[in-house]
Simulated scan of single mutants.
Amino acid sequence: MKKTFYHSFITLKEEEQAPNSNTNQYQPPRVLIEIRDIYPYSTQSQWQIKKILTHHEVAIGKLLLPFSDMFEHVFRYWNIFMANHVVLGYKVNVIIWDVTDQKMNNNPTRYRGEGFYVEMLPNDDYTLTCMELFKDRNLSVDDEIGLCWDPRGSSFQFTLFCKTLN
């Protein structure tokens, strides 16, 4: 099921009649709902989220995930309660599998616990906190990585495509 936001433009009678100390106009609340996919989602590549790391991401150990990527490639596979939890501003712990070296030794590294979570930023983008992964992989600015959500394992999969020479 696909997730989407809709704005509730219909105000309740109590909201209209309540004295508003704010002189701003009424801001309709956003509500996250599930809708049925009309067209099945097809993946051209396993690594739906590809990015080049920035200085800010490396310094704080958090991957910036744009709003569109989270909705199209992650929230699509989460249940409505889990997605709503993040949208309401809470942190959701996740598991990350580093499968970069999987072809060589077939032994991916699992990261989980309190240090690995997704949270929403004030600008509606999201972050994936994974400081230990940054340290273990010695990630640096301009490294190219790939991420995807694995619905079978309910976890992120991570790979390092290209390491810069610093």
Rank of each mutant, 00 (worst) to 15 (best):
Leu128Arg: 14
Ser155Phe: 03
Leu139Phe: 08
Leu63Ser: 04
Glu119Gln: 14
Tyr90Thr: 06
Ser140Asn: 04
Asn79Met: 02
Trp97Cys: 02
Ala59Phe: 06
Gln102Ala: 06
Asn138Val: 11
Leu63Met: 04
Phe116Lys: 05
Lys103Cys: 07
Thr11Asn: 00
Tyr41Met: 05
Lys91Pro: 01
Ile33Pro: 01
Leu165Arg: 12
Arg30Gly: 00
Tyr111Gly: 08
His85Asn: 12
Asn20Trp: 05
Leu64Arg: 11
Asp150Ser: 03
Asn138Phe: 11
Gln17Pro: 01
Pro29Glu: 04
Ile33Lys: 09
Gly146Asp: 07
Leu133Gly: 13
Thr23Lys: 10
Leu147Pro: 11
Glu144His: 00
Glu57Asp: 01
Asp125Val: 08
Val118Asn: 03
Ser45Gln: 13
Phe81Ile: 05
Pro19His: 04
Asp101Ala: 15
Lys13Thr: 14
Trp97Lys: 02
Gly113Trp: 13
Lys91Tyr: 01
His7Glu: 06
Cys148Glu: 10
Trp149Ser: 01
Tyr90Asn: 15
Cys130Val: 12
Gly113Asp: 13
Arg112Met: 07
Gly61Trp: 09
His55Cys: 02
Lys103Ile: 14
Thr4Ala: 07
Arg36Cys: 02
Thr23Tyr: 09
Asn22Ile: 08
Thr164His: 15
Gln102Tyr: 15
Thr129Trp: 01
Asn106Tyr: 04
Lys91Phe: 04
Gly113Cys: 13
His55Thr: 06
Tyr117Lys: 06
Cys130Glu: 03
Leu121Asn: 07
Val99Gly: 05
Leu121Trp: 10
Gln48Val: 09
Arg76Lys: 10
Leu53Gly: 01
Asp98Met: 09
Asp69Glu: 11
Asn79Glu: 07
Ala83Thr: 00
Thr159Ser: 13
Phe158Ser: 06
Tyr111Thr: 05
Ser140Gly: 07
Asn84Val: 02
Leu64Cys: 01
Arg76Asp: 03
Gln48Gly: 15
Asp124Gln: 03
Arg152Asn: 12
Glu57Gly: 02
Arg137Leu: 14
Asn166Leu: 10
Gly113Met: 10
Tyr126Trp: 13
Pro66Trp: 02
Lys51Glu: 07
His56Val: 11
Asn79Cys: 10
Gln46Thr: 12
Ala59Asp: 14
Lys50Ser: 13
Phe134Gln: 04
Asn24Asp: 11
Ser68Lys: 11
Val58Glu: 00
Cys162Asp: 11
Asp37Glu: 11
Cys130Tyr: 10
Gly89Ile: 11
Gln25Trp: 03
Asn105Arg: 13
Ser21Thr: 09
Phe67His: 12
Leu147Ala: 08
Leu88Trp: 02
Phe71Pro: 04
Lys91Leu: 04
Ser140Asp: 14
Val92Arg: 08
Thr23Ala: 13
Leu12Lys: 08
Pro29Gly: 00
Pro19Arg: 03
Gly113Phe: 14
Lys50Leu: 13
Val86Ser: 04
Thr54Arg: 08
Tyr39Thr: 05
Leu128Asp: 08
Phe9Glu: 04
Gln48Ile: 07
Arg152Ala: 13
Glu34Ser: 12
Ser154Leu: 06
Ala59Cys: 09
Pro40His: 01
Cys130Gln: 05
Asn107Val: 08
Leu65Pro: 04
Pro28Phe: 05
Gln48His: 12
Met82Gln: 14
Tyr39Val: 10
Lys135Trp: 06
Met104Cys: 13
Met104Asn: 15
Asn166Gly: 14
Asn106His: 00
Thr100Asn: 10
Phe158Pro: 07
Ser154His: 07
Asp124Phe: 15
